[in-house]
Design a protein around this nucleic acid. Structure first.
Lengths: 228, 228
DNA sequence: GTATCTATATATAATAT
DNA sequence: TATATTATATATAGATA
């Protein structure tokens, strides 16, 4: 990327190392900003020179917010691997730092709850919305999963019951058995626990998706299903 | 740096935004590594995609170390500004209690991001979903508000321009004035910054809402609007 | 340390697979 | 989506001020 090719190893000449650092640093910051703007990404970049001088870039000037988000992510991943000693390392975070972190978290949390939105820029609102959209998607997926599991269990129970009755009473009219087919709507998530046609609410947020009445009262989820 | 030049603004096309993100992300990570090796610098790079996926690079795989160093630096700077009363109100929450609160908050936050949902019951999922739905609603409302404000400002500017032109040139054909009526779609929130017909995405989470092209290129939000 | 000037090396946009 | 191709746009090494 210049007159000569450079090996990927520490530049020995002190001068040219410094010069290269200066040039590449600004290039890196520029590219960090570009990907952030072009692709709607959140970027945090921290660079310490060999002598310890700090340079940084962060989307929307919210370095703390991004770092906090990062820590939550990596924290969760680590917990997957080793949840034996959940204290130890963070035990000794100094009190003021802890407080600061807590405050950032609380502020974020408020935003996730749709509160205190006034100081946010359009960009930040946009990002927040996308996050919530994808979170909601995952939540609906998980809900479906749980419901399907419950349904399977119930189906089994019904079949057992059926068998018992077949054995106790004399077999009669097997066609009118208790077996029931699940309506396909039951297998799709809805914005509310009331199943109403298997469609997500058109607007996703305008209201609750309850506007359309259930097509068939029999497709309501029975109360015992709600207890998980 | 490719077949065409690109403006430094959000790429509206969803596909090419994703592709560009993927390419530039790897480019950025590569360069972060290069400056780190060539110039003996410590680098920490955190990138969250628009959908919240995490990518990271850090010198010597010690992200935490670098972040800590960063916090010490910026902390020192902050102390310069206001070192008068760094305690006062919550001085006396005991450390362990603070930690506990932090952990609870973090766990909640994860749920709000659609992660770690497995231990939640159907009821809890339902509640979570309702919370997010209403948060999203408020976020969209706030976004609309911001956009409308910007639009008002713009309308004013256009009118002023118009007046100036009327004064400078002789009045001619007032019917073809620059006044424009805002399409009703502009007044509803969309899932993306591109205004595209005023419809929320059908599922509220599937993707970006960019699938439908803008009905009229003139309804695109101008770049200066994005800067808030 | 910074800034400017090339010649090259790289990155990547547009495109197709 | 992931990768491959290719024409261009950028970044930057090396030199100099």
């Amino acid at each position: 990327m210049g007159r000569g090719k450079v090996e990927l190893k520490r530049i020995e000449n002190k001068i040219s190392r410094q010069v290269t650092f200066s040039k590449r640093r600004s290039g890196l910051l520029k590219k960090a900003n570009e990907i952030s703007v072009l692709c709607d990404a959140e970027v945090a970049l921290i660079v310490f020179s060999a002598k310890g001088k700090l340079f940084e870039y962060s989307t929307d000037t919210s370095m703390e917010r991004i770092i906090e988000k990062y820590e939550r992510h990596s924290y969760a991943e680590k917990n997957h691997t080793m949840n034996s000693k959940p204290k130890e390392n963070n035990l000794c975070i100094e009190h003021p730092k802890l407080m600061a972190r807590l405050e950032v978290l609380q502020r974020n949390m408020r935003n996730y709850e749709g509160e205190d939105l006034d100081p946010l820029s359009l960009r930040e609102l946009q990002s927040l919305q996308q996050q919530l959209d994808s979170a909601l998607k995952r939540i609906r997926t998980r809900k479906n999963q749980l419901m399907q599991e419950s349904i399977s269990v119930l189906q089994k129970k019904v079949k057992e019951k059926e068998k018992q009755e077949e054995q106790q009473q004399e077999p009669l009219l097997p066609q009118t058995s208790l077996t029931f087919t699940l309506p396909p709507q039951l297998l799709h998530g809805t914005s509310s626990l009331t199943i109403c046609g298997g469609q997500e609410p058109t607007t996703g947020a305008e209201e609750d998706g309850n506007r359309a009445p259930p097509r068939d009262p029999n497709t309501r989820i029975p109360p015992w299903l709600l207890r998980h």
